[in-house]
Amino acid sequence: MGRTYKLLISGPVGSGKSTFIRNISEIPVVDTDVRSTINIGKEKTTVAMDYGLIHIDDDEIHLFGTPGQVRFSFMWEILSNGAVGFIMLVDSTKPSEFPKARQILDYVTSRTEIPFIIGATKQDVEPSWDIEFIAEYFELDVSLVKPLLAIDRISSLQFLEEFFETYLRKRR
């Protein structure tokens, strides 16, 4: 019989969280996107959460995506409650957003011991930071930073399955 897992997906604005969840979810994603009243580089922004669901074999994985803007930081705490894994997305072409990503990473990992991985999105866009440099920035082992093409369903599924098999399933 399968088990149920809750995963937290977070990252700064435009890092690909909503796209990632939309691309892998087996159900219509519950989104809370509204039109942004300030320029954030895109038309809409998530203000509460994204929610999606996927199965890997018999296991049921609930995906909870946070808003990316810092003023919604209270949702990081709310949504991380009960999460057993954490996927942090960073836009590899926007190093100016890395400090915000680090703030989220520190916030979540300092409150609970949770397996996490960084998904470096937009590695296919130039100029983007290499995985090694991103790992160095976050002071992490390079194995904890993986490339992710969030707009591609196959890439997103492979990324999730690898994280799941490596850090979650083996903990059974």
């Binding site: 203000v47 509460a48 959460m49 808003p67 919604f72 949702m75």
Partner: peptide, 12 residues
Amino acid sequence: AMVSALVALARR
């Protein structure tokens, strides 16, 4: 921000 999150979720 909290009011916005609450209302967005309720609307959904």
